[in-house]
Structures are given as structure tokens and as C-alpha cells.
Simulated assay, not measured.
Amino acid sequence: MNFLNELFDNPGITKALPEAVVETLQMVGISGFFTLLIGLPLGVFLHTSAPGGLRPLRITNRIVSDIIVNITRSVPFAILAVTLIPLARLVTGTSIGPVAASVSLSIATIPFFARLVENALRDVSGGKIDAALVMGSTKMQVVSKVLLREAMPGLVAALTTTMVTLVGYSAMAGIIGGGGLGRLAYNYGVQRFDTQVMLVTIVVIVALVQIIQLVGDLFSRRVDHRSASGSSRRRRPAAAVPGTDAEAAVRPAGGADRERDGAAV
């Protein structure tokens, strides 16, 4: 009881925590939107321009994949966020706060999401693509109506993984002026040695990750037409047709013997 009283009397929890949660959601929402907006077309381009793709562009694919995507993914986020402070100030007019931190968060996660999109598109059967091309579909139609639709469960899973990663990145961004739960944990939990704030912050971050993962898994199952059709087929009961083996299977054990005895009489 004393622990709960101390918990609700702590200004770091009653006053600073709600604001920190809002700032974290703001960072994750803004950066997640731009990650989806830019990362999805970038991932499609990486897949279609690769050797053997719909429109192979060997040199351009190498430049985008090996130089831009791989180098950006190789830089640790803390170093990348500090390096991009001038860019954040140029774009948003400030170098601190959740909006400014969204610039570095977006640049860090766009290549990550694009690579996941590329891997999801690789799982689409080549036979379906060839069949669409044979029937006269354009390359744009193949991308929109075959590649993206068939890879939709993998794309949703990729977006879920990216959003979970953004929650972790946002905590690191808070330490360097981004705000949110990361700043709350550092200012109260580390500098003031407030264990209560640290524990509550960890619980909130874990809860956010669990909610994102559960929602992502739900949507992934909803858009997976293969598992949906298979489950409906498994749940559909077999209709018993009179005079067939299905009716004989549910007939009482002694029914056949009684019919033979009646015929003999």
C-alpha cells in the first residue's frame, strides 16, 4: 500500500509520464508514416530493379542497395541521430523535441523497412508473375495486383517489426533531446536515481511493443487469404447425403444386422 501511495505521489509519474507517452506516440506515428510512405516504394524498386526482376537496372540497383541502404543501416542510431541534428534543424526549425527527432527516426528506419519489403516480395511465386505477364498485364499492374497483394501478410509483418524498432529508437532519441519515455527514464531514473519512474517507464514501453505486435499479428492473419481459405475449408463439416457411406458411418451399430434379419423373415 505504501508503494502505491508513493507511486501516485511521484511527480515523475503523475505529471511527466503522460506527456512522455504522448511524445513517444508522436515520434513513432510521424516517423512510421514517412517510413511507410518512402520505404514501401523503395523496397519495391529494390526488388524489381534487381537482376531477374521485372525491370532490371543493375547499376542503379547497386547504388541504391549497396551504398544508400546498406550504409545507412550500418550506422548505429545514436551516432546517426547526432549527425542528423543540423538536418533536423533545417527541416523542422528546431533540433529538440519529438518532431525534430522524427527526422532521424525516419531516415534510420526507411532503409530497414525497405529491405524487409524486398525480402517479402521475394517470397511471391514466380509462376504467378509469369502468368500475369502472359495474360497481358503491364509491369505496373503486376506490381500492384500480384506482388503487393500476394506479399501482403509479409508486408504487414515487416511494418510491425519496423514499428517495434521505432519504439526502441524513440527511447534512444529521447536521451539526445527527442523527449518521450527515453528522456523521462534518463532524467528521473538515471540522474535522480528514481527506481519507480524507471520501472514504470519500462512497463509502458513493453506494453506499447506488445500492443503493436498483437495488432500487427491480427492484421497479418486477416490479409492472409491463403490461411483464411484453408481454415474455412478445415472448419466446413461434411454434408451427409442419404444413401451414401456418410450415412452408413453414423448409423447405429446394430442397424445393419436388424435390416438383414428383417429381410430373411
Rank of each mutant, 00 (worst) to 15 (best):
A249W: 12
V103N: 03
Q196V: 14
V164W: 00
V44N: 00
A50Q: 12
A16G: 09
G174M: 01
N187A: 14
G93S: 05
P76W: 07
S227P: 00
L148F: 01
G262E: 15
I212A: 05
A81H: 03
A157P: 04
G53F: 05
D123Q: 15
I68S: 04
N61A: 08
L57K: 13
G32N: 07
N119A: 14
D66I: 03
N70T: 03
V99E: 09
L57Y: 09
M198A: 11
L4T: 08
L148I: 12
L105E: 08
L159G: 05
R222Q: 12
A240G: 02
L116I: 04
V215L: 13
R149S: 11
N119Y: 07
L208H: 11
V215G: 07
T195M: 10
V75R: 00
Q191K: 13
I67A: 05
A264V: 15
A239N: 06
I129M: 09
N61P: 04
A256Q: 13
T165S: 15
G168P: 11
V206D: 01
R62K: 11
A173Y: 04
G126S: 10
I85N: 03
S95W: 06
G53Q: 05
I96S: 07
E6R: 13
P76M: 05
A20E: 02
F33H: 02
V75Q: 02
V28I: 09
T162P: 00
T244G: 09
V69H: 02
F3E: 15
R192C: 10
S31C: 08
R233S: 13
P18Y: 06
D130N: 10
T14M: 11
V75F: 04
T83N: 10
I59V: 15
V167E: 01
V190W: 14
V200N: 07
P11L: 10
G179F: 02
Q191S: 11
V156D: 09
G189W: 00
L84E: 05
V44W: 09
A228T: 10
S125C: 04
R260C: 05
N2W: 06
L159D: 06
R235H: 13
L147H: 00
S137T: 07
M27R: 00
L121H: 04
L181F: 08
I79P: 05
L155A: 02
